[in-house]
Simulated scan of single mutants.
Amino acid sequence: MPADRTEPPVTAFMLVKTTPEWLAMTVAERVQAFTTNVLPVIRARTHRVRSRFYDTEFYSARVTDIWVWEADDHDAYRLLIDALRETPFWDRYFEVVDLVVGIENGYARTYGLKPLATLAT
């Protein structure tokens, strides 16, 4: 994090459900579709955004995956969402069930407190 940063990163938990179109593809076709139809748009339209992906289909019928996006600021997050909406990712390959967006330890920042979080030992 740059020393001059005043705002914490924005973290978005994107809860999605795979569509029949996505599931009808082979794994190789899915990788090809994502790397040619989705990733180039994200890379061209966004910056300062990182992602992680979690499979949940074996625990939830409503949400099959959780995509965690961390953006350096709200503008970077907005650009990400705008980019995703212009790709087959949005409502063609995946149904976006919910977006939960937050700031890590926002309460601590607001009240000048140390975060109340546990750390692995």
Rank of each mutant, 00 (worst) to 15 (best):
R85C: 04
R85Q: 15
R85F: 01
R85A: 11
R85N: 07
E86R: 14
E86M: 10
E86P: 05
E86W: 01
E86F: 02
T87Y: 04
T87Q: 06
T87L: 04
F89Q: 02
F89N: 00
F89W: 11
W90M: 04
W90H: 09
D91A: 06
D91E: 14
R92H: 13
R92A: 06
Y93A: 01
Y93N: 01
E95F: 06
E95A: 10
E95N: 12
E95V: 10
V96E: 05
V96I: 12
V97G: 06
V97P: 06
V97I: 13
V97M: 09
D98T: 08
L99N: 05
L99C: 01
L99V: 04
L99S: 03
L99Y: 11
V101E: 11
G102A: 10
G102M: 04
G102D: 07
G102E: 04
I103Q: 07
I103S: 05
I103G: 00
E104F: 01
E104A: 12
E104Y: 00
N105D: 15
N105H: 10
N105L: 03
Y107N: 13
Y107C: 07
A108S: 15
A108F: 03
A108R: 04
A108L: 10
R109N: 02
R109G: 08
Y111D: 09
Y111A: 08
G112T: 09
G112S: 12
G112K: 06
L113F: 15
L113T: 08
K114I: 08
K114A: 15
K114Y: 10
P115W: 09
P115F: 08
L116A: 14
L116Y: 07
A117I: 15
A117E: 12
T118R: 08
T118D: 06
T118A: 08
T118K: 05
T118M: 02
T118W: 02
L119C: 10
L119Y: 15
